[in-house]
């Protein structure tokens, strides 16, 4: 097996293994399930970009793409997590949890 064949096989395997996560995105009962799966797919896409770079003999270029992609993925999932955290119906909330939320936000 040459390195090239191995690279192709690794890329295809990575793609196939993303499919269960994609199933979670489509079916997942809560929006957080979907978000977790999207986060996993995003990280693996960054890895896949490096693999594509190896395949095309242009790693030095694709590494930059991967870095940017990982950065955007992190910021994006963080932003959506914060967004879902805030838009919550408040009324039936117990007081203890509400106060804990403020403290938690301050500590982080």
């Amino acid at each position: 097996m040459t390195t090239e064949e191995f690279t192709v096989c690794a890329g295809v395997a990575l793609f196939v293994l993303m499919l269960p996560a994609l199933y979670r995105v489509a079916v997942g009962p809560t929006s957080f399930d979907r978000l977790v799966a999207v986060n996993v797919i995003g990280t693996k896409t960054a890895v896949l970009l490096v693999i594509i770079g190896v395949l095309f003999n242009r790693v030095e270029m694709f590494v930059d793409f991967a870095l940017t992609y990982a950065l955007l993925n992190f910021v994006g999932s963080l932003a959506v997590a914060r967004f879902l955290n805030r838009t919550k119906p408040m009324p039936e909330e117990k007081t203890s949890r509400g106060s804990s939320r403020k403290k938690g936000a301050k500590a982080s």
């Binding site: 809560t30 957080f32 963080l78 997590a81 879902l84 949890r97």
Partner: peptide, 12 residues
């Protein structure tokens, strides 16, 4: 990001 999602889910 795992921690952020976890907290968001828990508080939800």
């Amino acid at each position: 990001s795992t921690h952020a999602l976890m907290r968001a889910g828990f508080e939800d």
